[in-house]
């Protein structure tokens, strides 16, 4: 089982139009290496406060996972080896290097990590796309969900006396992003609604035609048998 199906499928996941996308555009000139200390710090927090994540991933020690926030210009490589876990930020990743890749908007990925949204529901709604070895992704999701992570809480604890203002600030920022998202959602919908309508009409026409073809084929078969 779990013989990593390294997928050769081409990745064409369009990020949803969101405030994160703007942040992504803003970050584009930043070299990923400059962000690495942030992720080193995050990993240190995880190792200290949530050792059970790596413990739950023990069976997948040799299965690195690529986390791709589709609205940011970089990807994160998670190497879950409990001896030497790594969280590396990179501009891009060759699918052959990893067992699996999770694509999704950053906001979704954070909410998922914090257990605030249901991973299955996210996947059912297609806001997350998984490529490669599904088993390691399921394991990672379950491990993270089980840890009861609260990213804001964790980081503010690290900040000591600065924690409280950070918490307030972060809360406000997330609220703002949420509101902005709603506004953008409205804008996006109004922009693409005509196109969607056209596509819908087209697919309705196609399925009607398909139905007719099937009926004809069936009739032909029945006729032949009679």
């Amino acid at each position: 089982m779990g013989q990593g199906h390294a997928s050769a499928a081409t990745k064409t996941v369009t990020p949803p139009f969101s405030p994160m996308l703007l942040l992504g555009v803003a970050l584009r000139p930043v070299r990923p290496q400059l962000l690495q200390p942030v992720f080193d710090h995050m990993l240190a927090i995880i190792r200290r406060r949530h050792p059970d994540i790596l413990e739950r991933m023990a069976d997948y020690a040799d299965k690195p996972v690529c986390i791709d926030p589709t609205d940011l210009p970089f990807v994160i490589l998670l190497d879950p080896n409990p001896e030497d876990p790594r969280l590396t930020v990179r501009r891009e990743i060759d699918p052959a290097e990893v067992a699996a890749t999770i694509h999704g908007p950053l906001e979704m990925l954070i909410a998922l990590a914090e257990g605030k949204v249901d991973g299955d529901a996210l996947f059912f709604s297609r806001r997350l796309v998984i490529e490669g070895d599904t088993e390691v992704v399921v394991a990672l999701r379950n491990a993270i969900d089980g840890a009861g992570i609260d990213l804001i809480e964790d980081i503010s604890l690290q900040l000591g006396p600065l924690g409280r203002p950070f918490r307030g600030l972060a809360g406000a920022a997330i609220g703002l992003i949420g509101r902005m998202r709603d506004d953008f959602e409205m804008l996006r919908t109004s922009l693409i609604a005509p196109a969607v309508k056209d596509v819908n009409a087209q697919s309705a026409r196609i399925s009607a035609l398909e139905g007719e073809v099937k009926q004809l084929r069936k009739a032909a078969r029945r006729g032949g048998a009679a």
Binding site: M1, G2, Q3, H5, S7, A9, T10, K11, T12, V129, I130, E131, D133, T134, E135, V137, V138, A139
Partner: peptide, 11 residues
């Protein structure tokens, strides 16, 4: 329907 036997292909 174990996850290790699941594969998604994007076309």
């Amino acid at each position: 329907s174990p996850a290790g036997e699941v594969r998604y292909t994007e076309t």
